[in-house]
Amino acid sequence: MEVIEGNWTSFQGRVILTSFVCLALTPVESLKGKDGSLYCELSGTAPFQITWFKDKKPLMESRKYKMVSEGSSATLHIIGIESSDTGEYECKASNNVGSDTCQTSVKLREPAKIVDKPDSLSVTAGDIAALEVQVRGTPELVPKWFKDGVELASGRKYKISFSRMISSLNVLSAEKMDSGEYTFEVMNEVGKDLSKINLTVLGGCLSLTWRFGISRKVCLV
């Protein structure tokens, strides 16, 4: 027998055993709690011995992982993908001639969600009304602020920012007419969430002082 480019052949030209190549391993981006599957396509002579790895550690068949090998393909089913399932995955296949590997990744796609916000806020006329909402989710997150159904934008009246998963709306020099219900909305490719915040702008405050040094701040609505 002779060796040609790593493949074993007979002089009659009939292939007895060939090395193989791992052709493809498709990455997975999944919603939390959903199942996901990694497919590894192989080219070469069966039978193959398949080993799956996550972050360089071998995986075993379990309730979490289901492994299927059929002909020139191998599949790893991941049941109920959670944050702990994200990472780098590797499919290693071998036969009597050699081995090859394919690498890919599993990522979690989390819908946009509001995790913390005030229900209401009261400020004195002339002050800055600062509304803040904390969110989470897979980027790219798109936050929006509304009042009376109209989307707000940064300008002389409002200053809007979004940094470190916190969206802020500052109502500059708040007036009585700024009182009302504000709606915050955040969305990404896989979901949307919204909440409402009531803003009350008080008419002004007076500092009243009684005998014996007793004082009190009274705000007019």
Rank of each mutant, 00 (worst) to 15 (best):
S10E: 12
L23H: 13
D35L: 09
E41T: 13
D127C: 00
V186H: 05
C40R: 11
K196R: 10
E185R: 12
G180H: 01
D193I: 05
K192F: 06
I214K: 10
A74Q: 06
F20K: 14
E151G: 10
S161I: 10
E189P: 00
S195I: 02
I4G: 03
G204R: 11
F212W: 15
N7E: 11
G13M: 10
L199S: 03
V28H: 00
T124F: 02
E90G: 02
K66W: 04
S154E: 06
G213K: 07
L199C: 04
G155Y: 11
L121I: 07
Y158E: 08
R14K: 15
T104K: 08
A46M: 12
R63F: 09
M67A: 01
A74T: 00
I78F: 05
K66V: 03
R109D: 09
L131C: 06
M165Y: 10
Y158I: 13
G180F: 00
E189D: 04
S84R: 14
L131Y: 02
A93D: 12
A74E: 00
F11N: 13
A130M: 09
L25V: 01
Q49E: 14
K144S: 14
S122Y: 01
G155I: 10
L172Q: 06
T138R: 12
I214Y: 14
V106S: 10
N170D: 10
E29G: 03
D119N: 05
Q103K: 15
R216V: 02
W210A: 15
W210H: 09
N96K: 15
R136T: 15
S72I: 04
V150W: 07
Y89V: 04
V135S: 00
W52A: 06
L206S: 11
S94P: 09
K92G: 00
S43A: 15
N7T: 14
F53S: 12
Y158C: 07
I128G: 00
P118F: 00
G137L: 08
E41W: 03
L25Y: 02
G80K: 15
S168R: 11
D148P: 02
S84Q: 13
N198C: 01
L38S: 06
S19Y: 12
L59H: 04
G149K: 10
L172T: 08
F162S: 04
G213C: 15
P58R: 02
Y182K: 06
D85Y: 06
V115I: 14
G87R: 15
V190E: 07
L38H: 00
P118I: 01
C219A: 05
A74M: 00
Y65S: 07
S94Y: 06
T45H: 05
T183A: 07
T104A: 02
G87D: 07
G204Q: 02
R211P: 14
L220K: 04
P47W: 11
M187H: 08
V190D: 07
L199F: 01
S122R: 08
K144Q: 09
K107F: 04
S99M: 13
S163N: 13
F11A: 11
M177A: 09
S179W: 00
V106Q: 07
Y89S: 06
P139M: 08
M60E: 07
C102I: 08
I50S: 05
S83L: 10
V135N: 04
L199Y: 00
K176N: 07
W8K: 12
G98F: 12
